[in-house]
Structure formats: structure tokens, C-alpha cells
Nucleic acid binder design. Structure first.
Length: 744
DNA sequence: TATCCTCGAGTTCC
DNA sequence: CTCGAGGATA
């Protein structure tokens, strides 16, 4: 890299050239950051470019460019692509990494369907192409749009580019009126080498090349790139394609799509594994990148019965090939502080190429992982005795997260010492303690720890939470340390505009902001003064309270005020729970020392006796919510009733216009709003299946019978629950009645 | 009390 | 994407 001329000694002409060069570099970096099709600059290098640009602009204000990078916020969403909402979510798949995982996948499905002893199930197995997934929508046989996967819900409209790909027919015949075809866009090794040799830019690997080519603003550039497409799935359809996965794929072929020729139908996990080895053996000769084999349950009716987990279908899995590895030196171990105060060690590595990606960091999880053994001194799974200066073998777990696979003890420096985990927060200096039974050290600084505060704020504006456009991690860090417009807690975000108006120096005149971006940011913030209760709760960043639990709580309470008062009522109970846990822990330790059996129930009961009925009722109500247990409840209640935390939340609430209660569950189901409990053995469907069924009909499925239960569904051999239900006057129905009801 | 499943939290590179 | 642990269940 050439030595940079100091800003002060630049001539006007040199400054113009330099500003142009910087604008180009920064623009390219922004695009790379956004489009993932080029190697990215490090944050430090990126910042250095921006700083130099700003310095030159300050020295030569009259030379500032119209498209100055300082006018743009961070990586501007430079997309010329429209957004398209997928009619049916684009899925991701669960992964299997060894034979055992595949056997379990099959076993899980049989268990769920209650087919334990029956003949082997049929699956399809096909190579998992390492490209990018694309969804094609055809209406009356015409291609109407093509969308990238995006986040699964919404993708980018790349229709014009998709039309230039030879494997993608513009028109298909003999199909349902409306159908979405899904598949993978990829580039062969040969085409990839030719493209890179032809000059212009060089891509790191075929996948990046395919991604970069598909996301060209000019479709003519895409046309010139040798992209290909394999179809493997379908979304909405007005008529079924077949009754099995296999038949449907055959149907796709007759429509004119390429389906991977190595797709096979296999009976049972053994056959799947055989085909996996076959594909693995052929891998080097295929001429395109694959990263595993996908297995799907063949029978579509069974697929439908199995349904989905949060993000993945239960009826499919991706069996990944072993990851690539590389050796490098561990130069240092740094400690990062998370939003809950967790201290996480990170390995700083001499940069090394692992499967086409330059890796310089790797997670080390916690103290035990680095030591290779737990606090009792027993070796732990995956753990290694890792020391600074060691040669370590890196792989990317699931081809993404860098991890340490192995340590070369022969090359360990003689003076290398075991890593001593810090007992203080590297950021605020507070004690960092590791609770007994916990694997992580936690900073006890709470609200006073700046690292925690920043991470909490980042979480607050993140996607599932307040999701404020134009306010990402980078901006949060900037505002946190800002003297004029500080943002130290969530409420500060909502007072930004007013404070900016009152300031002499305006945000829009700052580095990294312009007229437009400042106004847009304020607009985005305004829009969030109305926020769904579930998002609001999730945004608070309370430990153990994630998106799902936040949704559960929101549905249960409906209004923020109701939840807050419930927390106030339950406060003594939460304190009691925590005290009882602590007492139990020390009692167990003492009992172990003295060689007697611990007495825990008594103390717990004694503490519990002292509670007011109101407190107890409020607590029981919380614990009664499905998915909410004592740990979450205690965390929630103590946070909400801690005076400083609560004051901060109240300040935030005062700035909001409305915390919107969740919409009542659609009244589509016959069981909407009802709470049902299952007991005994169901003979015609498994418990798990029945639960999903009931929920689809709008019911809440609880584990135990209470006065709030509407129906108890009693299978064979129902016991105490049935007795209790009778005593409480709860309606008890048998399996036949349930089947009739659930068919509606 | 033990076991299974799902969620939460933390992390990397693009 | 993975690990740990919370929560549900047998």
C-alpha cells in the first residue's frame, strides 16, 4: 500500500483525486458489506478510510463531492431491488453431522408419527447445492417474479435477472394456476474459473460469484454470466403436484426444470447413508460445489402431519459433509461482555483461510471450554486445553462459525501457561462471578457497565425488538459515547429528535449524516412509538426472556399495565423463590459434607408460608403460563420491580404512544381461547401431534389441570388428572370426542 | 428424578 | 450455527 500524503500537504488537485478515490473505495466497501459478493474491508480499515475522507473534507470544504460518503449513514441500503414477500416462508433446514444424527432424525419422525415398529419410511436424498436459493412464482404458466431467500419471509425481487438464466423457463405448461418453484442458483467450477480468468473482478468462490452475478442491477450483466438452476421444492400451489416428494420432483422435470440427477428415493436411514457415501465419493467429479445431502420424507401427507418447528420442518434434514480445517497460531484471548453481562472469551488468530474464508477470530465459549475440563476437573466434550501461543486447528461449524477443533501439543511453546480467566469485567472493572452450576462468568456491574449498556441498546433496536431503521450497531456505538446527543438508555432514542432540535449543532450536519438520513432516522423512530407488547417485552433484554416467551407473556396479559402490576404483586414470591434456591444450594453442599440427605423441602415450605395469598396467586399465574417457569418468572419479576430498572422502563413507556396488545388469535379454530389438557395414552395420534393440532385450532395446551382448564382429553389409562378434573368440574372428553372435535 | 425438546444467548463473516 | 439450560414430561 502506498504511503498516504498527510492531509495538510495535499494540493487542491491531489485532494480532488484523493476524495474521488476514497468515495470509490467506501462505496465498494458498502456494497460488499451489503451484497456479500466481495471480500470485505475490516472495520478498522473502513473507519480509517472514512476518517481520512472527513479530514480532507474539513481541510478543503469547497472540494466536497456531491456524493460524499460522509453524507451516508454507515452502509446505506444500496439496493436497487424491490422487496417481495414470499407467499410461503422459505425454509432453512436442521443439520445432521454424522450417521447417528441421521438415525435419530428417522427415529424422531417415527416416534412423532407413532410408527415405531412399522416398515422403513421412504425418503428422498439429493445433493445440497452450495449456491443461493431462489423462489420463482408462475401464474398461469408465466414467470411473474423471482425472489431471493432474504430472511425467509421477504426476499429481493431479481425477476429481470432470473429471466436471463437458461435453466429457468419463462413459461411452463401443464401446471397448477399458481405455483412457486424453489431451487438453487449456482455456477460450475469451469464457468467460475473462466469468469475469473476473463478479468474484471475476481470472486472468492463459485457461490459468491453466483450471488454477485444474480444481484446485478443491470440484467445484461447477469445474462453474460453462466448461471444455472436446480429445482428442488415448491411453495403455494392451487393443485397438488403429486402425493410424494419424488413424484413432485418428477413433475418439476416434465415442466422443464432441471432436477439434480443424483436424487434418489431411499428406504430407511441405512439406505440414506449409503447414498450419502455415494455422493460424497462423486463430489470431486461433479463440477459444482455441494456441501452435503438433503433428506426429505417422501410422503407429503406425512410431511404435513409432522409440520414445523420454529424455523425448520421436522420432515427434512441436511446431512453436511465434514468441514474444511486449517492450522494457525492463537495470538491472544480477548474477553467480550454481552448484554446480560456474560464474559465470552474470543480467540484472536493469525488470519488463516478456511474453506475460502479468511478467519481471524473464533469463539472459545467459556472457562471450561478453554481448560478442556469442567470445574470438577472432568474432561468435557469438545473442550481442549487451549493456551495463548498454541497452534490450533480451525473449522467453521456448519460452515459458518469458526471454532477450534484441535491443539497441536507438540508445537506448544515451552513457556505457555494455562489461561487464567479474569475475575473482573474488562470493561467496567466490577467483579465477574461464576455462579455454582453456571458455565459463564458474569459482570456484576449491571446498569453501570458500559459494555452491557451498549449491548442492551443494540438488542433494543434489533430486528425482533424495536427494529429501528437507520439505527444499527454502529450508530448505537456512536450515540452512546456522544457528548451532544448521548443515547445511554432506550428512552434516549425517543427524545433524540427533540434534543437535536434544541441543540445548536444539528445531527444532519455531522459526519455520517445528512439532511435526508437524519430526517429518515427521526421518522423511523416516530413510527415505533406504537409497538406490539411482545416486541416491547423482548426489547427490554430481560434474561431468559426471548422472542417466544415474550409472545407467550403478551398473549397471556394483553396489556403492559396488567403485566407490570402482576410483577409488582408477585415480587415477594420471586424473592422467596430466589431465597429458597440459594438456601437449597447451600443446604445440599452442607449435607454432602456431612454425609446426610439434604433437607430442602422444609425450608422452602417455611419461606413459602410467609407469603400473602395475592403474591402467591400472582406467582402461580405466571408459572402457569406454558413456557414460563420459575427461572424466567423470577428474572422477569425481579427486573421489573428493581427500582432503577423500572424507573428506566417507565421513562421509556412515557415516551411511547401505545403498547399494542396482541391480536386475539384468529377465530378460525373451534378451540379458540380454550385451554386443554391431555392425559393418558392416545391411540390414534401421538401426544406431540395432538398438541400441535389443538394449537392450530386456537387452543392453549397446558400440562396440568386447573380451574382454568376447559377440556381434559383423556386417553387410555387416565389417572390423577382425570380425578382432579372431575373434582374441579372440568369437562372430560375421550379420544373419539377429541378426534371429532379436532376435525371440526 | 431423569430425559427429551425447544428456546435463549452468544458468536463469525458476509 | 451451537451450546447450555429451562421447561415439559414420563
Amino acid at each position: 500500500m502506498p504511503q498516504e500524503t498527510p492531509v495538510d500537504s495535499l494540493t487542491d488537485d491531489q485532494a480532488i483525486a484523493e476524495l474521488a478515490r476514497l468515495a470509490n473505495l467506501i462505496d465498494a466497501a458498502n456494497r460488499a458489506y451489503h451484497q456479500r459478493d466481495a471480500p470485505e474491508l475490516s472495520d478498522a480499515a473502513y473507519d480509517a478510510l472514512k476518517r481520512r475522507n472527513t479530514a480532507i473534507e474539513a481541510r478543503f470544504p469547497h472540494l466536497k463531492r456531491a456524493d460524499s460518503p460522509s453524507e451516508q449513514v454507515g452502509a446505506a441500503p444500496a439496493d436497487g431491488f424491490g422487496k417481495i414477500r414470499h407467499a410461503v416462508r422459505m425454509l432453512s433446514l436442521a443439520n445432521a453431522f454424522d450417521d447417528q444424527d441421521v438415525v435419530e432424525f428417522d427415529a424422531r419422525i417415527r416416534r412423532y408419527l407413532g410408527l415405531d415398529d412399522e416398515a422403513a419410511l421412504a425418503y428422498t436424498a439429493e445433493p445440497k447445492i452450495d449456491g443461493l436459493s431462489l423462489s420463482l412464482r408462475y401464474e398461469n404458466g408465466q414467470l411473474v417474479y423471482a425472489a431471493t431467500r432474504g430472511d425467509g419471509e421477504t426476499g429481493e425481487d431479481v425477476t429481470a435477472n432470473a429471466r436471463t438464466i437458461g435453466d429457468i423457463p419463462a413459461r411452463i405448461t401443464g401446471t397448477p394456476d399458481v405455483i412457486e418453484i424453489r431451487g438453487e442458483v449456482y455456477m460450475t467450477h469451469q464457468d467460475f474459473s473462466a469468469l475469473n480468468a476473463a478479468g474484471g473482478r475476481s470472486f472468492a468462490n463459485p457461490r459468491n460469484a453466483a450471488a454477485g452475478s444474480l444481484r446485478q442491477l443491470d440484467p445484461e450483466i447477469t445474462r453474460a454470466r453462466p448461471l444455472r438452476f436446480f429445482a428442488y421444492a415448491w411453495g403455494v400451489q392451487s393443485a397438488p403436484l403429486g402425493s410424494t416428494q419424488w413424484d413432485s420432483l418428477e413433475r418439476l422435470k416434465t415442466m422443464g426444470f432441471s432436477v439434480n440427477p443424483l436424487t434418489r428415493r431411499c428406504l430407511g436411514p441405512k439406505a440414506l447413508l449409503e447414498h450419502y457415501r455415494h455422493i460424497e465419493a462423486l463430489r470431486p467429479t461433479l463440477g459444482y460445489d455441494i456441501d452435503g445431502v438433503v433428506y426429505k420424507l417422501d410422503d407429503l401427507d406425512l410431511q404435513e402431519r409432522l409440520g414445523f418447528r420454529a424455523t425448520t420442518p421436522r420432515w427434512a434434514i441436511a446431512h453436511k459433509f465434514p468441514a474444511e480445517t486449517a492450522w494457525t497460531r492463537l495470538e491472544a484471548i480477548d474477553i467480550q461482555v454481552g448484554r446480560t453481562g456474560a464474559l465470552s472469551p474470543v480467540a484472536r488468530l493469525a488470519p488463516v483461510n478456511v474453506g475460502g474464508v479468511l478467519v481471524s477470530n473464533a469463539t472459545l465459549h467459556n472457562e471450561d471450554y478453554i481448560a478442556g475440563r469442567n470445574s470438577q476437573g472432568e474432561p468435557i466434550r469438545d473442550g481442549r486445553d487451549i493456551r495463548i501461543g498454541d497452534w490450533v486447528q480451525i473449522y467453521r461449524a456448519g460452515d459458518v462459525i469458526p471454532k477450534i477443533a484441535d491443539v497441536d501439543l507438540a508445537r506448544r511453546p515451552v513457556d505457555a501457561k494455562p489461561f487464567r480467566f479474569p475475575d473482573h469485567c474488562p470493561d467496567c472493572g466490577s467483579a465477574a462471578v461464576r455462579e455454582p452450576g453456571d458455565s459463564t462468568h458474569r459482570c456484576t456491574g449491571g446498569l453501570i457497565c458500559p459494555a452491557q449498556a451498549i449491548e442492551k441498546l443494540k438488542h433494543f433496536v434489533s430486528r425482533g425488538a424495536f427494529d429501528i431503521e437507520g439505527l444499527g450497531a454502529r450508530q448505537i456505538e456512536m450515540f452512546f459515547t456522544d457528548d451532544l446527543l448521548p443515547v445511554r438508555e432506550p428512552v434516549d432514542i425517543f427524545t433524540l429528535a427533540a434534543r437535536d432540535a434544541a441543540n445548536l449543532a444539528k445531527l444532519k450536519n455531522r459526519d455520517g449524516f445528512g439532511d435526508r438520513s437524519a430526517a429518515k432516522l427521526f421518522e423511523a423512530i416516530e413510527a415505533r412509538r406504537r409497538i406490539p407488547l411482545s416486541r416491547f417485552l423482548f426489547a427490554l433484554g430481560i434474561r431468559h426472556l426471548g422472542e417466544v416467551a415474550a409472545g407467550d407473556l403478551a398473549r397471556h396479559f394483553g396489556r403492559w399495565q396488567d403485566l407490570a402490576s402482576a410483577a409488582d404483586l408477585a415480587a415477594p414470591a420471586a424473592a422467596c423463590q430466589i431465597a429458597a434456591d440459594a438456601a437449597e444450594l447451600s443446604e445440599r453442599a452442607r449435607a454432602a459434607d456431612e454425609g446426610r440427605r439434604p433437607e430442602v423441602k422444609k425450608t422452602r415450605d417455611a419461606l413459602w408460608q410467609g407469603l400473602s395469598p395475592d403474591a402467591r396467586a400472582a406467582w402461580e399465574d405466571l408459572i402457569g403460563i406454558e413456557g414460563v417457569g420459575a427461572v424466567l418468572a423470577a428474572s422477569l419479576v425481579t427486573t421489573l420491580t428493581q427500582p432503577k430498572e423500572r424507573a428506566s422502563i417507565d421513562r421509556l413507556v412515557a415516551e411511547l404512544i401505545e403498547i399494542v396488545p396482541p391480536e386475539a388469535r384468529g377465530d378460525a379454530g373451534v378451540l379458540t381461547g380454550k385451554t386443554v389438557v391431555f392425559t393418558g395414552t392416545l391411540t390414534r395420534m401421538t401426544r406431540a401431534e395432538a398438541k400441535v393440532r389443538a394449537e392450530a385450532l386456537g387452543a392453549k395446551v397446558a400440562g396440568s389441570v386447573s380451574a382454568r382448564t376447559d377440556f381434559l382429553i383423556a386417553g387410555e389409562g387416565a389417572g390423577s388428572k382425570a380425578t382432579k378434573a372431575a373434582a374441579l368440574g372440568v369437562t372430560v372428553i375421550d379420544e373419539d370426542a377429541w378426534l371429532a372435535m379436532s376435525r371440526g
